[in-house]
Amino acid sequence: MTLDRKVGLLAGLRYKGGGPMLAWILHRITGLGMIVFIALHVIASLLGGDIGIAINTVYQSLYFQLFVVFGIIFHGVNGLRIIVLDLWPKFIEYQRESTWLEWFIILPVYGLTAFVMISRFLAGE
């Protein structure tokens, strides 16, 4: 009897695909993160009361906001990179450079945003 072909999540994650595979995984995680963020907003508004306030506390926390902002910036920039590569396949041979360019955009934009958010948080705003 042959062994099942099923590839579990852990077996898949153990495959050493390198930077582009990590970018793909991060793209999925950040996409899900945004769905969770929006869903929490809707659920909090729908339920109201103590549960609504409890949910508000989660998504208004600095850590959650820092994650969501990173998720939005990464998902947007990485998505644009994929769109460019899909529309102009000749650029695919520069995919390694495109990944560097992506982080060259993400890091300063996210760094500046996080700096402003943390400064305001520390200032008690």
Binding site: G17, G18, P20, M21, W24, I82, L85, D86, Q95
Partner: peptide
């Protein structure tokens, strides 16, 4: 999904 594992 343009993951590039195949190229590698």
């Amino acid at each position: 999904h343009t993951i590039f594992n195949c190229t590698d």
